[in-house]
Amino acid sequence: MNPVTITIDGLAIPAQEGMTILQAAQANGLYIPNLCNHPDLDPAGLCRVCVVKIDDWKIAISCKQPVKEGMVVSTEDPEVQRVRKNTVELLVANHPMTCLTCERDGNCELQRVARYVGLEPTDLNRYRRSVRSLPMDRSNPFFEIDHAKCILCGICVRTCDEIQNINAIDFVKRGVASLIGTMGNKPIAESRCESCGECVVRCPTAALSPRHRVQPMREVKSICSYCGVGCGIRLGVRGDQIVGVQGDRENPVNGGSLCVKGRFGYHFINHPERLQKPLVRKDGELVEAEWDEALDLIAEKFSQHKGEQFAALASARITNEDNYLIQKFTRAVMGTNTIDHCARL
């Protein structure tokens, strides 16, 4: 890829051939407002918010327009400003004004864009407000769909297509009636959706939002415990509870992608049925016991059954360090190599 230089609002910036104007701007820390663009996806060019003027004659969308050596880009040309502002005003006039109670408040791309173009109440008052009143789709246990907040950027559709290749959702109907829906416009739970939640994490508004979301106080990097792929995750913690899981975009294995189990299957950690005390069988019943009692009993019994009377089954779910110690214990303390685990199952 050949390096090129373009000028954005008078600032010369380096770029690579093959980049779009928006990519070049972002690579140089410049913000061009946009809504339907996502770095993981092919540009769609639907929101028309990223319009710029090229070489002082042509309005183009920066998310799809490739850079060219010597290209002169204006993001503040009066025509650009007008188209961009009108477009954002149209979206806002069509959007519920429930920001304070919205899951995405403060982290909403529509808010960000509205703030950037400088929406004024007087400008908005000129418009005929209309917010779609479609029932929310709450059929999925992990996330819900609020069509009223959907700006039809299509990021979810492209995620489901380009990344997941599942194609559970697409644009349905036409014109203002357009919405993102499933085959036959059935509830999402009755579609081929695999609940991976990849669309939910990319939704720029709260049209797709996790259910019962609790904001974490801190995040801890770890590895998903569900299959051999070993996806990087960030565990969201609040108090002493795990309240969410995010894909770790820095992890080379998954680059942030997760499946339904990895993203949503963490509730077992806080489950009330978790074993919290040792149990010892007394009179045929398992009853709670102190650690000392349980461990003493084990030490006593194991001491009687060393060598070929002992077997250990380690686990493919616990850590390397756990496994190492179990085999070391079996071999060095119990004097037998009879240790195996469920690798074969």
Partner: peptide, 22 residues
């Protein structure tokens, strides 16, 4: 070979098998 559980590879590597040490 795609390993099924999260740490099958590791538990094998760690000698969680009857014929090998780590």
């Amino acid at each position: 070979p795609l390993r099924g559980q999260n740490n099958v590879q590791g538990s094998c590597d760690m000698g969680g098998l009857p014929d090998v040490y780590p």
